[in-house]
Design a protein around this nucleic acid. Structure first.
Lengths: 243, 243
DNA sequence: CCAAAAAATTGACGATTAGTCAATTTCTGT
DNA sequence: ACAGAAATTGACTAATCGTCAATTTTTTGG
């Protein structure tokens, strides 16, 4: 790595360029056609220089995913900072995540691949741990809101159930759903015409099931959703045409 | 394809051999080290013969996944055939699926990859459609039980919510969870010590949230689970050491 | 400002592996 | 037994990963 400050800045900048190029290529052509020669060509650096930054193709994927996981974290954080009851804040995080996914269609394409151990294993331990850190932080943001709800007496978890396990449920529901949406599975043929709405509905059913007040029959979460879009994510929801 | 009956049988048998070899290699060495030369070597056929059956590496993956999706369907079916209330039958399907995943650890490794459009796209339309058919059938088995519950008045879905959307929720929860479990994500570090139990708990919370009777506070589903293991999947649960 | 050393950059190269196809072997019907 | 069809083979081409010796650029010290 370069020593001088200016060099270091340029180095970081180039790293960004590589990641963003790879992201674009992944989205345009898919994993199998994403290759180092092309990345070198598009970034206008040589292959050797690319390898100065990343030890292999898969490492770029992990870096890419880390970056977008961090971005997702910002959306979650903004959701969790909303003024309101914990369950409304949870809803805001769901809306935020949904917006994040819509605005970063490459995220789940990368996630799907990086989830594969044989691909993940090729990345350096440093980047592996960085990504794990992101996931951990993001999960913590979500479980924090749940813990607030417990502390304020809005929900009482059964004996032996932890906030992390419930958060895991929220995470897996979202993960599975967005994975399916970003893949080639024909949800329409399966009778799921509006998967994003289904995710929203199912999340509320899950939270209702845990007895997290106010239950969806006690509060109109559709209205809350409108408020979240307007107050927390005005710019993003406009960008997604959800005004 | 061969004309005579015996030849045809042998052809199918060899196709199985190829799939099973690929399955084993995928599990042992991961996707990146799964290669056609190795498959040819292990099956003791030449590469050309392998390509007689499958147009590319990815096609083998899709065939592999189709096969195990069919197998999963059998577990679901057995669960849905259990004597009892629809919600117990749903629980039986969840237990069955969990057993299936435990007994077929390669399934989600393949699923993860095949979910990726760039990999899926390389397979032939025939196999693509076959897999889609499996998914459709499996989803239909699950939503069928839900429809039974609706018909018998055990649950009333809200206006605008279909059985398919709820099934989608069950599916995505399970998919996301097993994907994470079969990947390198360190769930323990995230505070999830028993993800399989979490999946079970979260499913019940979801069904409770939809108001599907009997609710988990009205019936001891732990006991139901014991009965399912004993009555529906005695052999498999013993094999998994869940007696 | 210059020269020597250090650092960064390059792309040709070796190695691996996907997929093809002409040559060979095996099978089938008469 | 034999001709022709079908199946099988593995050497070959092409693509692409990752390396590294040669080259260019930058920095340093006088």
């Amino acid at each position: 790595m370069p020593a001088s400050e200016r060099k270091k800045r340029e180095y970081v900048q180039r790293e960004d360029l590589i990641i963003h190029t790879a992201r674009k290529l992944l989205l345009d052509m898919g994993y199998l056609d994403l290759n180092m020669d092309r990345i070198a060509e598009v970034t206008e650096y040589s292959k050797g220089t690319i390898y100065q930054h990343f030890s292999c193709k898969e490492e770029i994927l992990v870096a890419m995913l880390s970056e977008s996981a961090e971005k997702a974290g910002k959306f979650l954080l903004r959701g969790s900072d909303m003024k309101g009851k914990p369950r409304e804040r949870m809803a805001a995080m769901a809306v935020g995540y949904d917006l994040f996914v819509g605005l970063n269609p490459d995220h789940f394409k990368a996630q799907l691949l990086v989830q594969n151990e044989s691909i993940m294993r090729k990345a350096s331990p440093v980047l592996q741990r960085k990504l794990e850190g992101c996931n951990q932080r993001n999960m913590h943001i979500v479980s924090g809101v749940l813990r607030d709800a417990v502390a304020e007496g809005h929900v009482k978890l059964k004996e032996g159930v932890t906030a992390e396990e419930v958060t895991f449920g929220l995470w897996t529901g979202a993960l599975g759903a967005y994975v399916l949406m970003s893949s080639e599975v024909n949800l329409n043929a399966l009778g799921v015409t509006d998967p994003r709405k289904a995710v929203w509905d199912n999340m509320h059913a899950l939270l209702d099931g845990f007895g997290w007040r106010p239950l969806s029959k006690e509060l109109d979460y559709e209205q809350t959703r409108g408020r979240i879009l307007k107050e927390v994510f005005p710019q993003e929801s406009a960008q997604m045409g959800m005004a």
